[in-house]
Every structure is written in structure tokens, then in C-alpha cells.
Amino acid sequence: MSTEATNLNDVRQPIERANGLPNAHYTDPDVHAEETRALMLDGWAGLAVAADVPEPGDAVPMEFLGIPLLLLRDREGQVRVFQNICRHRGMILVDEPRKIEGAIRCPYHSWCYSTQGKLVSTPHVGGPGQNTHDGIKREDLGLIEVRSHIWREVVWINVSGTAPGFEEANAKLIARWAEFDKPLYHGGADSAFRLDVNCNWKLAVENYCESYHLPWVHPGLNSYSRLEDHYHIEEPGQFSGQGTLVYRQLTGEADQVFEDFDGLSAKWDTAAEYIAVFPNVLLGMHRDHAFAIILVPEAMDRTSEHIHLFYATPEPDAELRMKNTEQWKVVFEEDVFVVEGMQRGRAAPGFDGGRFSPVMDGPTHLFHDWVAGRLQAHRQQLAAE
């Protein structure tokens, strides 16, 4: 199916009469490739968290939409993202997580790079024993750095390099959570887990940003944070989600709780917010902890969800930390059958993308509208070239 077959005009209608994205946006390889460029590579997408490389020299190879990348904390402690290839013949430089003790050495011809990406050694490039050549300008052949930014401990990347600055592009969200502009501490190995789901990544976003499904999919959570306690969060073109007016702190066997973030307004004594930052990062914010979910499209119909929990202080209570991880794991696992069921449903040829509840589905409709708008702009740009 060609991308011209996906008519997006019905998606961009007011919610009362809009349809959801056509089936092809979940099942067609051509449309998936088009979305990769328009939605993921041209804007700011989530790649990882800074805690994946906690110490200087730590390096983790990653693949993002087929692109080999290297997440690295350089000698000065700055987190960087490079294309994980040698500038000589395109060989993969690092094939498993490790500490870079000296330089990043290509296993093919031993070209070496500093942790800041500078080409520092080219053995025998001018012939045996000749490590330089006039035709090889080391200053021009450093690693290809991918534009990156850290916010809420998430490593965001703009692969194309063409997006507005991160703080400009996300100014409204940064302002919304300005009270939480404080250090976040990753809970460690017991505060991270991964879920692999058989669905297109967009379905995970669609499900996350609305509260409509809570009574049926999350009965435990809904028992105290009821559907009527929730409100919509909608910022066209940027993010959407839900908030709750009822948040109950987790307590341990000795009635201990996590320490709160300092200086919060009274609103956060009982409130919490859950926001999908387009395209692929899902954030949760509470008075005493936060989480980030990075959605990685492994294939058109497969997504890995990387969940990380953060706290206001380093090394919070271990018992409570484990309890919190298990609680959130249960909640997120409850959503798996829903997103996988919707993916299977997209094989029905008569499905028109579905309809939206004008009252309950605002955040999800906003996401569909964002996808459609970005794709329309992308198609217009291609047509003009």
C-alpha cells in the first residue's frame, strides 16, 4: 500500500466527528517507514536515561529505528550520543556495554576516538609505520554526534538535527512542571524493567494518555483514584495526558514513605500527572517519585517499553522501592492485553480508525491529530522538493 492511500483529513476533524488513524498506520511497512522519518527522526525522541551510563567512560550501544548509536558518558561526565560507526569503513565500534578505559578503538583497523568523539589515532593510514597522511584530516573525521538533551533524566535525541532547541520545543511542558525542576535520582537496578508488547508504538501512547479505561483495566488503581477524580491534559502539537486529584503515597510495613520533592505547592499533596510527550516518552510525576517510559519501536507491530523510576533522594528505602516497582509493573502489565488486542483489531479491513468519545477521549484524539498533522506537513515538504 502506498502512503497516498492514507487519507488523514477525517483524523483532523473536531473530536465529535473525527476518525482515528487508518489501519495502515499500524500494519503497513511503507507507512511505518514514513512515520519513522516524520515523527521520530525529525523531532525530539526519547532514547534512554542518563542512568544507563552512570560513570565517566560508560558506553552502551543502542539501535534506534535501525540506526546504530552509542550512548556514552565522556571523561568530563557529559552524556553524549554518537553514531556507533568508525569514520573509516563504517564498522561498528562498540558491540556490548562496557567501560571505555582509554580510547574507543575500532576493531577493524584500530582507528581510535576520544570519549568526546575526536579522532586521535589512525595507525598505518599512510602506509606501514606511517600513522598520518595529508589526505586524512583527523579534525574532520570525528565520530558523528547526534544532537541530544537531558531533561527529567531522559536522554532526548534529534537525529535529523533540524528540530527547534529542546527547551524551545517543550517550553510549555517545562513550565508546567517547573516546581519539579530538582535533581532526580534513579532508584537503581530494582527500579528499572522492560516490557515487550506485540503492538505498534502509537497504541501504547494512545492508551497511556487517557483515563477512560481505568475502571475496567485497572480496577485496583481505580478503587481509590476513580475515573471522576481525573482531568485531561491537552497541549496541541506537543503533549497530552491525564491528571488525578487523588494520589495516595505508598507506605511500608513500618509506615515509612518516600521523601517528598522540596518546595512543592499544596496541589501536589494529593495530585499526580501522567503525560505523553510526543512522540515516544511517557512521564509520571508525583510528590515523592517520578517515572519515565521510553517506547522503542522494535518493528511495525512490536514495541519495547523501558520503565525507569526516580526519587527525590539517592538510595531511598529499599523495601519501599521494591514495593513501588512491583506496584507499577502490575499496572503497566494490565495494559498489555489492551494494546495487543487493538493491534490485532487493525487487521479488520472494515475498521475505519474508530471514533472518539467527545468527553473522555480528548487526549487520545489530540495525539492522533498530532500524528496526522506531522505526516501531512512531511508529505507537503516532499512534494515541494
Rank of each mutant, 00 (worst) to 15 (best):
R374F: 09
A5S: 14
Q381W: 10
L309I: 15
R105A: 13
G126W: 04
V94N: 06
I150S: 08
G237A: 09
V146W: 02
P316L: 05
L173F: 15
I307N: 02
Y231V: 07
D229H: 00
Q78P: 00
R12T: 05
Q380E: 15
L195M: 13
Q343I: 07
A178G: 05
Q380S: 15
Y212P: 01
P22S: 13
E4L: 11
S2G: 15
N19P: 05
R37Y: 10
R17I: 14
P61V: 04
N9M: 02
K267G: 03
F278K: 05
P123T: 08
Q343G: 04
A171V: 13
K323D: 00
A254T: 01
T325H: 09
E235Q: 13
D262C: 02
G126Q: 04
A292L: 00
E145H: 14
L221S: 06
H32C: 10
D190N: 13
D52P: 02
L382P: 06
G127N: 05
H308L: 02
D58G: 08
D190V: 12
E63K: 04
V11Q: 07
G345T: 07
R80E: 01
K118A: 15
K182S: 02
N23R: 14
Q381D: 12
S121D: 13
D10N: 15
N131Q: 07
V155C: 05
N19A: 01
R287S: 11
T313N: 02
L39W: 08
V94A: 06
I275D: 07
G66Q: 06
D74C: 12
E4G: 01
E234A: 06
P215D: 03
D335C: 00
G354T: 04
H124L: 14
N198F: 12
A163C: 15
M300D: 08
V49T: 10
A48Y: 01
W328R: 15
Y208L: 05
G165S: 11
D28K: 13
E167T: 09
V60P: 08
N324D: 13
A59H: 10
C86E: 11
F261V: 08
D361E: 13
A254R: 09
T36L: 09
P314T: 14
G362C: 02
N7E: 08
G237E: 11
G241I: 02
M342V: 15
A276H: 01
E385N: 10
P61Y: 05
G43T: 12
L195I: 14
R105D: 02
T36F: 07
S2L: 04
A318W: 11
G127R: 09
D190S: 11
Q130M: 09
D10P: 08
K172R: 15
A33L: 09
T303G: 00
N23F: 08
C199L: 12
F337P: 12
Q13H: 13
R194F: 01
E340M: 10
H88L: 04
N131P: 00
L8D: 10
V146Y: 01
I150G: 01
I157D: 05
V94K: 09
A377T: 11
S2R: 14
L71F: 01
E145G: 10
P164V: 11
R12C: 03
P183G: 07
S148Y: 00
D269L: 04
E206P: 05
G353T: 02
F193Q: 00
R374I: 08
R37S: 13
R344K: 03
G345Y: 11
G188D: 06
V246Q: 04
